[in-house]
Amino acid sequence: MRRLLLPWALAAIVFVALPYIVPDYYVGLVTKMLIFALFAMSLDLMIGYVGLASLGHAAFFGLGGYTVGLLGLKAHVSEWIALPAGVLVATLGGVLFAFLALRARGSYFLMITLALAQVVWGIAFGWRTLTGGDDGLPGIKRPTFFISLADQTAFYYFVVLLVGLSAIALTMIVRSPFGLALLGIRESETRMRALGFNVWRHQFVAFVFAAAFAGLAGALFVYQNKFVNPAFLHVVMSAEALIMVILGGVGTLLGPAIGAGLIIFLEDFISSQTQRWLLILGIIYVVTTLFAPRGLIGLYRDFVARRSKP
């Protein structure tokens, strides 16, 4: 038991100590990594555990973000209401999308989620009086929950707390009997149906959960950036999350989180070094797909398995 707890304790210490070790800029960057880790984990719930690849996940990210931004900026609502409302609106968006999209499978599901997300994007882009169109909504304030989170370090701890709790919640979901049933559905829908499971209802609940966590990530990202813009719910954002999940390792939760952190770090780091950074990122993706089809986590596991053999 002690061996199991040690790495977690170490990780906790690193996350708590980070603002004392690294300059402000990296605290901001790690905050962004954590937020995208949550976003990627929520998408992994869909891809890895339900087996439904979505190209519209950024819609929930953006719904959460726009709700928080609009309520704070236009309605001057307290953050105690705005943040939960952001998650709630994303959840309701998830309910609506699930009703429409869960009729299809495979690439058709991909297309429907893409189309639905583009509708949300179109509204954010076109409804200028409400959303500010493609200028977005600048000037959103960081929230105050007991203490002011305007300072980057304080906000970082807030994000560590919420992303940590969400990660625990997601882990509990996928390890619960419900999560096991999802895995069963991913492997064979017909068999699970024959066993008496309501396949559609399981998928529906997982879809809504994924939307809710994506909404939380989006709300946090808006607070981090202090503005919201249609780019937050664009298909590029959805595709980026998809790459994070695939790079990290589908169906592992921790893998997508690492994939998210790594991609945010690489995008920032390599693009500062060279103008050819897109080429380098592309090569990294291709190499990962070729040599680590199960993602970085898969690679790590193969490595451990090989070493433990005599």
Partner: peptide
């Protein structure tokens, strides 16, 4: 990958510490 949820604690946390 059907055993995805059986990932051992140690290797998950190990990877996070490395990152």
């Amino acid at each position: 990958m059907s055993k995805g949820h059986h990932v051992r604690f140690a290797e998950r946390a190990g990877a996070r510490v490395v990152a």
